[in-house]
Design a protein around this nucleic acid. Structure first.
Lengths: 254, 254
DNA sequence: CCCGTTATTTATCAAGCGATATATTACAGC
DNA sequence: GCTGTAATATATCGCTTGATAAATAACGGG
């Protein structure tokens, strides 16, 4: 569970690897926000293998997030203040380092605690959705996460498919299910969830995720108050979706 | 003006360069949809410079959309069925070819006719927004467009900023302005448009564009009936946004 | 303070890259 | 057909890349 103090603003956001990321926000169209270079020790420094490996992996994450996976090992080494062959003492190949970066960024990025938020019928649906997306934002509104996800998506890496499968199972389907319950529509047991319904839920997800794309891929300024923006997303969604949703489900059931 | 027959479905969509794009849709999580290889003539064929240049540019667009701009000139040549040095008879450098690809993809992708759709107060706002996004989809729901836009966004190419500036001026601000008019709120002359209002309009745009990201970057299946999906987006937006919008504007107007 | 271990660097390879120079050959005009 | 032009291919350069081998030096233990 990520410890984390209130993020009213995305400004000066720290990413989930605990690395500082210098996000230049609130200025119109700032240049690409980047992770700050760790340290560039000019003199040879002897470290324990564990310490050095951590440094390499952390910097590799930022480096590949910035340049994509075609970034050169020599450039990465330069940013680390080490020589390029040293990387090969810790990783047998560039590919294995990239694999490690994937593991580091994707694994444990889905918090099982989130699973319970959307289906918790003791709270109003609007609260649940807002609560979920606010929590989720803490993991996903992140320079490294968004860019690596986009890069690997464009590259066709299978890990994306798997992650999006989780999104479908843990977010979209629960959203549709809870909306069915909320608006007294047949449960998914009786009338299976339609593709068009999922498309509706993708709409909410799109509002949410495209904000991250705008910021971390396009370097555009986004809402100052992220929590407020998410509440607006959810409020817009719940005010507008039911009508469409009912039509879809009735057509499917009827 | 692009001639174009009704696209009820995105299946078998043709992109705007007139190139066939084989889109594998409706199967769950299909592999990345690609542009089909033009032709791979095994024997040396002598063409007019104009014809050859067109072939190179068209294939380069597909090639870089697929692999990003780090794609190798030798691979591009192989797909064209020509040798790599021949590329350099038509373009002095790889960079100049990429520049040409940018021009080809971006230029004239904004149709000035679209400018009039959103502000046309003789029609209901819902119709106008749906009409605009349906038209816009014809240009943007396209393998080449989406992927090159994402690649160049991640790379920080300035042409993206310029294009997004157009989106702001021609879409987001008009949307906010028309909503103000629709719901009897002060016009932007009196009360300038707030960042939070723009964020609201970005929400609609995000629903729209993220659908393209899902399909062309993540290779996910999307709505079969694109026009219907867009109508759902707009209908959801207009049913849900006003409440939030009013709060924002009234706060701003004091 | 010395010495051995090993983290780190220097030197280098082989393949691949963008790009250029030179050799071929397809086609138009006679 | 023959021939000249130029579209295309072959051969190759110089540099960069991922990766390896050998040399160096930082630190811990005695």
């Amino acid at each position: 569970m990520i410890h984390y103090e209130s993020i009213a603003k995305i400004v000066d956001f720290k990413n989930n690897n605990g690395m500082d990321c210098e996000i230049t926000m609130n200025k119109p169209f700032p240049m690409t926000s980047k992770c700050t270079a760790k340290a560039a020790p000019s003199k040879r420094k002897r470290m324990s293998p564990e310490e050095r490996e951590t440094l390499i992996v952390d910097e590799a994450i930022c480096f590949f997030a910035e340049h994509g996976f075609e970034g050169k090992t020599r450039d990465l080494a330069k940013r680390l203040g080490i020589t390029q062959p040293l990387l090969y003492r810790y990783f047998p190949s560039k590919e294995s380092l990239i694999e490690r970066v994937y593991q580091e960024v994707y694994v444990q990025r889905w918090n099982p605690d989130w699973d319970d938020l959307i289906p918790d019928r003791s709270r109003p649906l609007a609260d649940r959705l807002a609560a979920f997306y606010k929590e989720y934002a803490r993991a996903v509104y992140d320079y490294v996460w968004v860019r690596i996800f986009l890069y690997s998506g464009l590259k066709g890496v299978d890990i994306n498919d798997r992650y999006l499968g989780i999104i479908k199972d843990k977010v979209l389907i629960p959203v549709c299910t809870e909306m069915r319950h909320e608006y007294k529509l047949p449960s998914p047991d009786k009338t299976p969830i339609e593709a068009e319904e999922l498309e509706l839920a993708w709409g909410l997800h799109g509002m949410f995720f495209y904000r991250a794309v705008r910021h971390f891929a396009y370097s555009l300024p986004v809402a100052e108050d992220i929590d407020q923006a998410i509440e607006n997303d959810v409020s817009m969604f719940l005010a507008g979706a039911p009508k469409v949703h009912k039509r879809i489900v009735k057509k499917a059931a009827g």
